[in-house]
Amino acid sequence: MPKLLFSKIRINEFKDLNRNIKQPETLQEHSTPGLKLADLLINKDYLSAFRSFLETEFSAENVDFWLACREYKKISPVKRPYRAAEIYEEFLHPMAQKEVNIDHHIRDKIKRSLANPDLTCFDEAEAHIYKLMEKDSCPRFLKSEAYQDLRNTRQEPKVDLL
């Protein structure tokens, strides 16, 4: 196998070139101070405060739907069709009092799946609502007085697994 010949000058050029390339920012430089949505959703105190905040913004149905979807995945297959219909009527039906904002294609797909619902029938809607909360509601909550007050009264958040 032929050997590649590099002079010391060429190697030093590569080293200099490497030094001039901006190194990736650390994770801390990208992160914002405070908690993330996932942290809020696994802690009972923060979840309660977040839900109260969403009530003031008339969007508590988002977290309620997300929690209902998480609970749905834990129920027995026998109860699944009944609970899936309840979730649809409560959050996805066009006339639901707690209707969440999802695309009509996702809504129709879920409605068709109600004949034989599986564990994943709400996954697309759940992910959509999670992204809405993550990009919109959560940043506003983290800047709110309610969050600041709660954060100042707590030393370390206690994680409560769902």
Rank of each mutant, 00 (worst) to 15 (best):
K131F: 09
Q97P: 03
C121M: 11
A49M: 07
Y130A: 07
A125P: 02
K111A: 06
D45S: 08
S137K: 14
A68H: 06
Y130L: 09
E57C: 01
F50L: 11
Y82A: 03
L67P: 00
S137I: 15
A60V: 02
E124I: 09
W66C: 01
D45A: 09
I102D: 02
F122H: 03
N116E: 12
I129N: 07
E124T: 06
R70M: 08
Y82Q: 09
D118L: 11
F65A: 01
F58S: 00
E124V: 14
Y72N: 07
D64L: 15
D118E: 06
D123S: 06
K131H: 10
C69A: 07
R70E: 13
S76M: 08
Q97A: 13
A96I: 04
A125L: 08
R140P: 05
E57A: 04
A85N: 09
N62S: 01
A68E: 08
L92A: 07
L54D: 00
E86Q: 08
F58N: 01
L132N: 00
T56I: 03
C69W: 13
Y46E: 15
Y130K: 15
P117R: 06
K79M: 11
F65L: 03
I129S: 02
Y46N: 06
F122S: 04
H104N: 11
A84S: 12
P139S: 13
D45E: 08
A85M: 12
I106T: 14
A85Y: 07
R51N: 01
T120P: 00
E90T: 11
R80A: 15
H105Y: 08
L54T: 01
L114Y: 12
H128P: 01
E55I: 02
P139W: 13
K143T: 12
L119C: 10
C138P: 01
H128T: 10
K109A: 03
K98M: 06
E61N: 00
H93C: 13
H93W: 04
D118W: 15
F141A: 14
S137A: 10
W66L: 14
E55K: 05
H104C: 04
T56N: 04
I106P: 01
D45G: 07
S113Y: 12
C138E: 12
A115W: 14
S59N: 02
E124K: 07
F91D: 03
F65K: 03
L132S: 02
P81I: 09
L67I: 09
F50E: 02
Y46V: 12
P94N: 13
N101Q: 14
A127G: 13
L67K: 04
R51M: 09
K79V: 05
E90S: 06
P81S: 02
A96Y: 07
R112S: 13
A68Y: 11
L54E: 03
S76K: 06
E99I: 10
E134G: 00
E71A: 14
A115T: 11
N116P: 00
E55W: 01
C121H: 12
P94H: 13
A127C: 11
M133E: 00
A49W: 15
R107T: 03
Y72L: 08
A115M: 08
K135C: 05
K109M: 06
N101F: 09
Y130G: 02
C138G: 02
H128Q: 13
I110M: 09
I75W: 08
D103H: 14
L114S: 06
C121Y: 10
E86D: 10
E90Y: 10
P77R: 09
L92C: 12
Y88N: 03
F122M: 07
E89K: 15
M133K: 03
D64E: 08
I75T: 10
V78L: 04
I87Y: 05
T120W: 05
